[in-house]
Lab assay of single mutants.
Amino acid sequence: EMEYEEITLERGNSGLGFSIAGGTDNPHIGDDPSIFITKIIPGGAAAQDGRLRVNDSILFVNEVDVREVTHSAAVEALKEAGSIVRLYVMRRKP
């Protein structure tokens, strides 16, 4: 069973403070093209906020749908998102 969360982060000097993997051209798990959080960087915006978790998958960055995009398109969406970034994420319920 999945749960969904909308997380708004303010981009810090060091960016959003997380790493991603995945994409249609580089699936992270099997042939699932989802964009997954692979690392939360200590002291970064995501770590300070505390809600984003490793293995969360990002569905939307602001209004941009990143469910079926290449890795570089997801990176671009995050880069272009401005200083306030709304992430709509999905994760397995614990």
Rank of each mutant, 00 (worst) to 15 (best):
N55W: 08
G50D: 09
D32L: 08
L78H: 03
R86M: 15
E10A: 09
R91G: 08
R67D: 02
M2E: 02
G82P: 04
E10I: 07
N62Y: 02
P27G: 08
Q48F: 11
A45T: 06
K39R: 13
S57E: 14
F36K: 09
E3N: 14
I58E: 00
S14T: 12
V89P: 00
M90A: 07
I35Q: 10
I41V: 04
L9I: 15
G82E: 08
R86C: 13
N55C: 13
N13P: 06
T70C: 15
A46K: 01
L59A: 14
P27D: 07
N55R: 12
I7M: 10
L87I: 13
N26S: 13
D31S: 06
K39M: 05
D56K: 00
G22N: 04
S34I: 15
S72V: 12
E80A: 12
V66Q: 02
D49Y: 03
G82I: 04
M90Q: 08
V89D: 00
D32Y: 09
D49T: 14
G17R: 09
A45F: 10
A21R: 04
K79D: 01
D25G: 07
E68L: 08
M90C: 12
D65W: 03
R92F: 03
I29V: 11
E10Y: 05
R67I: 03
E5I: 14
H28C: 04
V64W: 13
A46Q: 02
I7D: 00
G43M: 06
G22T: 03
V54D: 15
A21N: 05
I29D: 14
G44I: 06
N55G: 06
D31V: 09
L52V: 08
T8P: 03
E5W: 05
P94F: 15
D49M: 03
G23T: 06
Y88A: 03
T70L: 07
T38D: 05
G23Q: 04
R11L: 07
D65F: 05
D65G: 14
S57I: 10
L9V: 10
R92Y: 15
E3Y: 11
G22Q: 14
S57H: 05
H28E: 06
H28A: 05
G44C: 01
S14G: 15
D56Y: 05
D25R: 09
L16E: 15
G15S: 13
